[in-house]
Computed example of a mutant assay.
Amino acid sequence: MALSATLYTFAVQLADVDRGVYQDMDLRVARHPSETAEYMLTRVLAYCLEYEDGISFSDGGVSSDEAPVLVRDLTGHVTAWIDVGAPDVDRIHRAAKLADRVAIYTHRDPVKVLAALPAKRIHKSDAIPVYSFDSAFVEDAAAAIERRTAVSVSVTERLLYLDLGGAAFSTQIEEHRLA
C-alpha cells in the first residue's frame, strides 16, 4: 500500500521589502512521503519569495516533471518555473524553453548544485538564478515546523527573517548564476 501525502497548513504573513510585496495567505502544502522537511520548507520559502498573481504549488511530487512552484498567466501559459533542491539538467533545460523565467531555490550546497548543472547544456542559462539558503538555517527552521504553523517571512536587502510559531531564524539569501 502506497503512503499518502501529509497535509501541512501555513498561515503566512509575507513582507518582502525588496520587492514591495506584502501579503497574508493560507497555504496548504502536501508533503509527499519521499520529501524531507528541509525540501518542503525550501518549497514554501520559494513560493513566498516568488509570490505574484498566478502562483501555485504543482500537483506533482518530488520526482514530478513539473516544477514544485509555477506561475501561470490567465491563459495558462507558464510565466515562471520555480524549481527546488538539486534539479536535473534536462529538466531545467526543458523549463527554460517552456517558461518565460526560471529560478532555482536550494537548501543544498550551491557549489554542488551548480556543478551538476553545466551551463552549456541549458537553454538561456545566463538568465537562471540559483538562490541558496544556509543549510544550518534550513535544518533548524525545518525542525520547528508543525502540521499547523503560523509563519512570518520578512525580506530586506536579501536578508531573510523567518518566524515559525514563535521560533525565529535568519539567513542571507545567496544568489548564484549558472553561467
Score class of each variant (00 low, 15 high):
1 M>D: 12
3 L>W: 11
4 S>D: 14
5 A>G: 13
6 T>K: 11
9 T>V: 11
9 T>F: 04
12 V>G: 02
12 V>N: 06
12 V>C: 10
15 A>F: 07
16 D>G: 03
22 Y>L: 09
24 D>C: 04
27 L>H: 02
30 A>C: 02
30 A>L: 13
32 H>S: 14
32 H>V: 05
34 S>D: 15
34 S>K: 12
35 E>V: 01
37 A>M: 13
37 A>D: 15
37 A>V: 05
38 E>Q: 13
39 Y>W: 10
40 M>Y: 02
41 L>K: 06
45 L>F: 03
48 C>N: 07
54 G>P: 08
57 F>R: 02
58 S>G: 15
58 S>D: 12
60 G>R: 08
61 G>S: 12
61 G>Y: 06
62 V>H: 04
63 S>G: 12
65 D>V: 11
67 A>N: 01
69 V>P: 02
70 L>E: 09
72 R>T: 15
72 R>S: 14
74 L>Q: 14
76 G>V: 08
77 H>G: 05
79 T>I: 11
80 A>G: 02
80 A>S: 14
80 A>M: 06
81 W>L: 00
83 D>W: 10
83 D>E: 15
84 V>Y: 03
87 P>Y: 10
88 D>P: 01
90 D>K: 14
91 R>H: 14
93 H>D: 15
94 R>W: 10
96 A>V: 05
97 K>P: 00
98 L>M: 15
99 A>H: 07
100 D>H: 06
100 D>T: 07
101 R>M: 03
103 A>W: 00
106 T>K: 00
107 H>C: 07
108 R>M: 09
111 V>A: 15
112 K>E: 15
115 A>I: 01
115 A>D: 10
117 L>P: 00
120 K>Y: 11
120 K>G: 01
121 R>I: 03
121 R>S: 10
122 I>R: 02
122 I>N: 02
125 S>P: 07
125 S>Y: 03
126 D>P: 00
130 V>T: 11
133 F>S: 00
139 E>I: 05
139 E>H: 07
141 A>E: 08
144 A>T: 00
145 I>K: 04
145 I>P: 00
149 T>L: 01
149 T>Q: 05
150 A>I: 04
151 V>D: 01
153 V>A: 04
154 S>A: 13
154 S>V: 11
154 S>Y: 09
155 V>A: 06
155 V>L: 12
157 E>N: 14
158 R>M: 10
160 L>P: 02
161 Y>N: 12
164 L>N: 04
164 L>G: 00
164 L>M: 10
165 G>Y: 01
166 G>D: 07
171 T>R: 09
175 E>R: 15
